[in-house]
């Protein structure tokens, strides 16, 4: 699948924002006044920047308002609705907390739950697609939630929790890649089932329908840069989980170290999300003898 920068930025940055909301909603860290205001602004800022970025890949944004209407069937619609609810709830909670010194735990828990629900709805947009076998697994939502929570723990300075979450990220990301590499084969779809010609023997594409490019190939049969995938996987795990974990364990964590940890985590996260898209094979590629 095409790794559109807008979608990568959206899912990573907003994930971090909603992850931070998870902890702030739980009352962590235990701060108030302007410090709480700064934390809340960072959380809202990241979530809103991410959500705005997601609108950049729309072909016809003037109709985006209708996207809140189909919550009965569409995960994308649910994501839109839940994200607005989350932002609203968290905004009220944070305003009362930071400016009126009135932290309402119940409202905070609600904001935390909504924040994780938003991340879950985002992940289901991908996980629901049978046409992309690599994404069509329960590990997809699990990973999105883990990444968001781990990033939120780092941002909210909950380093012990962060260590556990980074460990889980490491484990489940490795599992996702191992499973993912055989997902298309295991899905049972092949050029033979795609064409229905398997009965005649081994099938191959003799001639493409057109000599140029097309939307399908650009959007769903994206293969550029895949050759670097193995290196990027190692780099991503190193930066997203290992280096932050080592810094937490081996150094006295201060503001400079936290900045280094966040920078490392975010770069690793971009690499991970790029791979998530670039390595996802859509079954339509079978009609083009490509994966």
């Amino acid at each position: 699948m095409h790794p559109a920068p807008s979608v990568i930025i959206f899912s990573t940055i907003s994930g971090l924002g909603f992850g931070l909301m998870l902890f702030l909603g739980l009352g962590l860290p235990d701060v108030n006044g302007w410090v709480a205001a700064v934390f809340a602004t960072v959380a809202l800022g990241l979530a809103v920047i991410g959500l705005l970025a997601s609108t950049f890949h729309l072909g016809n944004p003037k109709n985006a308002i209708y996207a809140f209407s189909q919550w009965k069937t569409s995960w994308l619609s649910r994501e839109g609705i839940v994200s607005i609810l989350t932002l609203g709830t968290f905004f009220i909670y944070a305003t009362l907390w930071a400016f009126m010194d009135m932290r309402i735990p119940a409202l905070g828990y609600l904001a935390s739950a909504l924040a994780m629900t938003t991340v879950f709805t985002t992940s289901m947009i991908y996980a629901q697609l049978k046409s992309v076998p690599r994404w069509n697994t329960a590990v997809t939502p699990l990973l999105f939630l883990l990444y968001a929570a781990a990033g939120g723990a780092l941002l909210s300075n909950q380093m012990t929790v962060a260590l556990i979450l980074l460990g889980l990220v490491f484990a489940f990301q490795s599992l996702a890649w191992m499973q993912g590499d055989t997902a298309l084969t295991r899905s049972g779809s092949s050029i033979e089932t795609a064409t229905g010609l398997g009965g005649l023997g081994k099938v191959r594409l003799l001639e493409k329908p057109h000599s140029g490019k097309n939307y399908l190939l650009q959007e769903m049969v994206y293969v550029v840069g895949r050759k670097h995938a193995a290196k990027l996987r190692v780099l991503s795990l190193l930066l997203v989980a290992l280096l932050p974990a080592l810094l937490i364990l081996l150094t006295e964590v201060n503001h400079v170290i936290v900045a280094v940890i966040m920078l490392s985590h975010i770069i690793g996260l971009f690499a991970q999300r790029w791979l998530f898209f670039a390595q996802a094979e859509h079954v339509v590629g079978l009609y083009y003898d490509a994966r």
Binding site: G59, N60, L76, L129, S189, Y215, E219, H282, V284, Y287
Partner: peptide, 23 residues
């Protein structure tokens, strides 16, 4: 239609194409 392209992703057959001019 807001041109998000998700339906084209969901179709296994490549039957939907987002028009690059009309969006």
């Amino acid at each position: 239609c807001m041109g998000c392209g998700l339906c084209a992703w969901a179709c296994p057959y490549g039957a939907r194409e987002l028009d690059q001019m009309a969006g």
